[in-house]
Design a binder for these strands. Structure first.
Lengths: 148, 148
DNA sequence: ATATTTTCCGAGTATTTTTGTCAAGAACAA
DNA sequence: TTGTTCTTGACAAAAATACTCGGAAAATAT
């Protein structure tokens, strides 16, 4: 999986927008100042999110950005997938689909595959609303509790 | 989390060693050839794993590397943590410990914290033996099955 | 002992990714 | 119009990653 500042900034910015939901439109410069991010860098990120339809942006005076839908409908996994590109934890993909090393072994394929799925499942369960409400903790309880 | 080729190479190499467990010592060049990795690059990686005590290496003719313990005792999380450095998915750490943005908000702290824990939990459950036996699939079943 | 094989180790280089800047253009409102 | 603000792409700096190199140390065989 890829998790860089870009993804974090995106989540931060959208969290900010979620908090400011009532106000008409929030300017990039405001978000950037509040969250301490380079505003020009944030531009790129919000642009991607806009193209993907997660936010709407209007230009001109009193313009800015706004969430396109309810905070509870926007999942963290979506945000990250958009700005970072689809999560890719494989590492042994070949064009043919099945991965073959020189000796034909690629025992680890399933591992990266499952990890990817696992992360996506986790982040797919958490919405922006969960974050602003602080409902994040405790979500990652062990898969099978009776194993412990 | 950080997952680069270094981590993948490490898991690949150790998987290779796990398969070759019976033979005395496996040379870097053999692993590199089989797994199609640059052997000089693999050197660095195996060195780290050796310093961490996961493998033992002897030099000289008939030398090479060998797992330090049973494949079922070596967890993927350990391998990755060693070669990539401790996983760090936070993003809002300040020297003071508690993270404060310009406006004092850092709602996303808990999120990265939980994600990190979640990934580590997953990779901490899987051993080298699971990989060579193909016991990886199905481990990432949804946290609460009755939710679906 | 000497040569050979292999790991060990530090340093260095190259490539890619990330991060951030700039400048010109477009939409909008007053 | 005039000024504000987003839009867009091209570009540059910085950091991380991937990989190489040259040699030293250890073990072995001859």
């Amino acid at each position: 999986m890829k998790l860089t500042t870009k993804g974090r900034y995106a989540v931060l910015a959208l969290t900010d927008l979620a908090l400011e939901r009532d106000e008409d439109f929030v300017k990039i410069s405001h978000i950037a100042m509040r969250q301490n991010i380079s505003s020009t860098y944030l531009e790129q990120i919000l642009l991607k999110l806009k193209r993907a339809g997660l936010v709407v942006g209007v230009r001109g005076p009193n313009g800015g950005y706004k969430l396109a839908s309810e905070p509870e409908k926007i999942m963290i996994a979506d945000i990250i997938n958009i700005v970072e590109g689809k999560m890719e934890a494989k590492g042994c993909v070949s064009k043919s689909g099945s991965c073959t090393g020189v000796s034909g072994r690629c025992m680890t394929h399933d591992l990266w595959d499952e990890l990817s799925r696992h992360i996506e499942l986790f982040l797919g369960q958490i919405s922006l609303r969960d974050i602003i409400k602080g409902n994040v903790l405790g979500r990652s309880s062990p898969p099978r509790a009776f194993n412990y």
